[in-house]
Amino acid sequence: MGLIPDFKKIATRSPWLYRINAGSCNGCDVEMATTALIPRYDVERLGCQYCGSPKHADIVLISGPLTVRVKDAVLRMFDEIPEPKVTVAVGVCPISGGIFRESYAVLAPIDQYIPIDVNVPGCPPRPQAIIAGVAKAIEIWRERL
């Protein structure tokens, strides 16, 4: 029993990243893909990798202003992600609505529906900013473990 808490401290675990597109214009998604796929930015240096299933995810990157149409799907998917999870809002859309703010078709800010931990403003944020956000999210995630 006494060993287990120490183990948790010693072993640095590697989080899985997962992306949710909550009705984004695709700008932020392209930047997120860039962050992961091209060697110039290479988010995997931080010890994390994108995964394809919400059930494996630890850190969720959400883009888009949560349109009325995708709301149910997004909330259902978010519930499937196991605790402890850390949520990163990528772009100004999920944070405030950005350019779509106060539109009848969007439900932004997204933190009314989903607890958000880290915000990365930008439209879209540059890959370095997304990496900074992921780095912050990993810190928070390690504390929550």
Partner: peptide, 14 residues
């Protein structure tokens, strides 16, 4: 300056 990353608690201080 592009590094505006912040925790959600500071949202309205940006």
């Amino acid at each position: 300056d592009w590094d505006l990353t912040h925790v959600n608690a500071d949202k309205f201080e940006m």
